[in-house]
Structures are given as C-alpha cells and as structure tokens.
C-alpha cells in the first residue's frame, strides 16, 4: 500500500529514470509499476467498450439491412471485402504482438530488446500501410464513408477507429524504442512504460482479430 507518497507520475512517466523525479527534495518514488499497470487495464476496459459500441452498431445495421452487402436496388454492385490480403495483414499485426513480447522478454533478461521493438513498430506500420492500400482500392471500387450506405459507413468507421489506435500504438512503440536506444531506459527492474505500451498493443491486436472476423470473415459476407 503506497500512500503518503506521491509524485507527478502518470501512466507513462512512471518509468522514466528516477533522476528525473528528483529535482526537488520533495518527490517520492514513482508510482509503483503495479498501480500503473492497473490504471492501464482500467483504461483498456473503456477502450473495449468503445469498440463494443461500434461493433454492436455494425451488427444492428447489418441485421437490419437484410442482405450484406445491402441491396439498394439501384443496380450498383458493392465490392466484397478482400479477405486474403487482410488475412495476411492480420498475421502481420498479430506477429507484431509477438515481436513486442520478445522485446519485453529481452528487457527482462537484461538485454536491450530494441531490435524487437523496432520490428514490432515496423510490422504495425506495415499493417497501416496495407490497410491504406486496401482503403484506396475499395474507394476505387465505389465504397467510401459516403458511398455504399451503411456498408461503407460502418466498414470505414470501424477500421478507421482501429487504424487510429494502431497509429498511436506504433508511435508509442517507437517512443519506447528511442528511449531504449538513447537512454537505455528499460532494465529488468524498470519497464512499466514498456509493459503498458505492450498491454495497449496486445489489446489493439485482439480488437483487430474481432474486427477481421466480423467485417471480413463472417459467412454472410460475399467472397
């Protein structure tokens, strides 16, 4: 129970070297790692509810549309979702979670782990890149936020929300990478920020697996 102690640590700052917090005689040790991780987990609960809201909206709209892609009776054929390309992309994203995990393992063993971090970030970036390619292709096939009714709306909004999360995740991983390369911030005994970014990153991956399943794989979607 850490009480009368306090400092200005936030979710991420807690992992900065202790010296940073010792500018005045007053500061106590950083908030303990367990507390930081708990905070992150609670935050991720709310993220989970954000995606639940979006996903249930998608399911309700899909249910109400009758067929999927919906038939607007205007003779325009709406493109199916590219399962294969995105499947590969899914593997890449999940792979990056593993890379991240190896980075954490390395740090805990006293190694740098920076290489794994960079790999994880690159795989995340690749995912975003491929996703952009897919977006452009669908755009040319006549699907966009404002085209294809709820089919387009929900697809781009859901993947868009997720994509934004991936982008933030990539930035966070890069931030960890630079901290590690320049300052060697993370040691076997101090790696809260690394853990928290990891929690976030794994969460974003799990969400993607759900999204991939319902947006692309679900039986009813056209091949």
């Amino acid at each position: 129970m850490n009480n009368a102690s306090y400092n200005d640590s936030s979710l991420f700052h807690a992992a900065l070297p202790v010296e940073d917090h010792r500018q005045d005689h007053h500061a106590a040790p950083p908030t303990s790692p367990a507390i930081c991780k708990l905070g992150m987990c609670i935050f991720l609960c709310s993220e989970a509810l954000l995606f639940s809201g979006l996903i249930s909206a998608y399911l309700i709209l899909r249910q109400g549309a009758g067929s999927w892609p919906p038939n607007f009776g205007d003779g325009i054929e709406l493109p199916p979702m590219p399962k294969l390309l995105t499947g590969i992309n899914t593997v890449i994203l999940v792979g990056s979670s593993f890379a991240y995990h190896f980075a954490e393992m390395a740090v805990k063993k006293g190694k740098s782990g920076a290489g794994w971090l960079l790999l994880a970030a690159m795989m995340g970036a690749t995912f975003v890149g491929l996703q952009c390619v897919e977006w452009t292709e669908l755009y040319h096939e006549g699907l966009w936020f404002n085209k294809g009714g709820v089919y387009g709306s929900s697809f781009f909004t859901l993947t868009g929300f997720h994509g934004a999360h991936v982008c933030i995740g990539v930035l966070l991983i890069l931030w960890c990478f630079f901290l590690q390369v320049t300052k060697g911030t993370f040691t076997p005994h101090r790696h809260v920020a690394l853990d928290n970014v990891g929690l976030y990153w794994h969460f974003v991956d799990v969400v993607w697996v759900f999204l991939y399943t319902i947006l692309y794989l679900d039986r009813k979607s056209v091949v």
Binding site: L61, F72, F145, K147, G149, V150, G152, S153, F156, T157
Partner: peptide, 14 residues
C-alpha cells in the same frame, strides 16, 4: 460531415 449513413434510412441506416 463525411456523408456516412449510420442514422439515415436512405442508406439503410437506423
């Protein structure tokens, strides 16, 4: 602002 149709019946929104 982006022309989605989540709540617009014409795009099968609800």
């Amino acid at each position: 602002n982006f022309g989605t149709t989540f709540f617009r019946p014409s795009g099968y929104g609800q």
